[in-house]
Write a protein that binds this DNA or RNA. Structure first.
Lengths: 151, 151
DNA sequence: GTAATTGCGGGTATAATTTATCCGCTTTAA
DNA sequence: TTAAAGCGGATAAATTATACCCGCAATTAC
């Protein structure tokens, strides 16, 4: 029941871009503790999904393809992990012989849809705002306790 | 974002037991199209989680440890797949350096909790009732179309 | 008390997926 | 023309999921 690390990396990258207009993969990778070669692959998926736009060559990098208000967790999760569905039945229909009368199927479908809706209700502009607020708090906390962590 | 096949098998087994008071692993496996050796492993987990009670020897088999009204999807999912959490951060705290100020973390935690609550709201008595209703419909449908499938 | 049945638990094999890295290529701007 | 940056294909390594097997322990019937 977990997202993959790829999904995590992707969300962090988009969150980073919501705060910086444009950045190179290498920069994002460094800031977010992600192996840059791997992040490059992830960015390709995000690019193919139309979430980011890439620019090659000197002075290149990646930017969000649309304002962060219009990018949701669902967009990113689906770009990386495929459709949000709790059961493989939904992804390859006709596979399960119980399909036509399965109460579990029906229930999981409903819960999965609700889950997808929850993801869709979170956009990256809000996340960036929240992060900034949390970050402020954490900064104060770090000064007091000597805790560490890139911000 | 999917449950594993194990989770699926486990749910089907419990649903089966909600309709039959007691059954052998082999019976359940046959009826639900599950490899019986594999199901045996899954039943062990369900047993250790206190969801089913097992009885060895002639005339043995497994029974639900409590009435199906009191067994939820969450119980079964957690017994098989571990805690319902969308991000590994929640399972191994202290791993992520961003933990203390991460807006994504906070959001996923919230969504994950809601998801768990949705699972907890579905019990197997209700599922069994729904299945019976769906099954009736499917039976009629099968007679008309010649479709197949164990019921 | 012996035999048949049924689950227990440990081990192993296979496959699939996830994570990560590498390298030659294309595009782009200076 | 060159250096920077992403593209895309290949592959390796690690982890997890799926499945099977076997001897053992418990239980019941005879």
């Amino acid at each position: 029941m977990q997202l993959t690390r790829q999904g995590d990396y992707a969300m962090r990258a988009i969150l980073f871009l919501a705060a910086s207009p444009q950045a190179r993969i290498q920069e994002i990778a460094r800031a977010q503790f992600v192996p840059k070669e791997y992040l490059a692959k992830i960015v390709q998926k995000l690019s193919q999904a139309g979430i980011v736009t890439t620019h090659r060559g000197v002075g290149g990098g990646i930017t969000l393809a649309r304002p962060p208000e219009e990018i949701t967790l669902l967009d990113v999760v689906e770009a990386i992990e495929g459709p949000v569905a709790l059961n493989s039945c939904f992804i390859r229909p006709g596979e399960c012989p119980r399909e036509s009368y399965c109460a579990i199927h029906a229930e999981l479908e409903h819960i999965g849809n609700t889950l997808a809706r929850m993801f869709a209700n979170v956009n990256f502009a809000d996340l960036a705002k929240k992060e900034a607020a949390l970050c402020k708090g954490a900064k104060a906390w770090r000064l007091e306790t000597g805790g560490v962590g890139e911000m």
